[in-house]
């Protein structure tokens, strides 16, 4: 379990503010992508985020375009997980497939504030912040496998190797 701080945002955080459209057709290295993460929502984020930090948001996180970079840039920034009341469908898939854990917890979404210290117990389905513990439905084994491999492409590579 690694520790981090909470970055708290509201409802309907869309993929445009997570990763602006003007960058989507440029090839960028992960560090460069990270430097643009959440640029149009919170310019402080990219400067101050530390590995292990957690984004906490309201409903429908990641709505809008299907651009995969909106998940990749947060992972590159070292974000340990995104916790939200709900996720837009394609964002949820893209996040898992790019190795970014996305956890659904209405309670955590309601109660956590920016700057709170937080730890995540992925196997136990728990988000821990001081005395407070919030449960999330544990991710299914197949999904955990993809996250542990570091994303779908890596997972697929391993699977292909095993098959050989």
């Amino acid at each position: 379990m690694s520790k981090g701080k909470v970055w708290k945002y509201g409802d309907d955080v869309n993929t445009d503010v997570i990763y602006a459209g003007k960058y989507t057709y440029q090839q960028m290295r992960p560090e460069e992508m990270a430097s643009h993460a959440l640029e149009d929502l919170d310019p402080e984020f990219a400067k101050d985020v530390r590995p292990g930090d957690v984004i906490v948001a309201g409903k429908n996180f990641g709505c809008g375009s299907s651009r995969e970079q909106a998940a990749a840039c947060l992972r590159a920034a070292g974000v340990q997980a995104v916790v939200a009341k709900s996720f837009a469908r394609i964002y949820f898939r893209n996040a898992i497939n790019l190795g970014l854990p996305v956890l659904q917890s209405e309670e955590a979404s309601k109660n956590l504030k920016s700057g709170d210290d937080v730890e995540i117990d992925f196997g136990g389905g728990k988000i821990i912040s001081g005395e407070k513990v919030f449960k999330f439905p544990p991710l299914p084994d197949s999904v955990i496998g993809i996250l542990e491999a570091g994303g779908l492409l890596e997972w697929t590579k391993k699977k292909l190797e095993r098959a050989k």
Binding site: S66, E68, I90, R93, N94, N97, L98, G151, L152, L153, W155, T156, K159, L160
Partner: peptide, 11 residues
Amino acid sequence: GRTEMASLWAT
């Protein structure tokens, strides 16, 4: 998404 389509082609 595109990454998953590539993976689908492969597996």
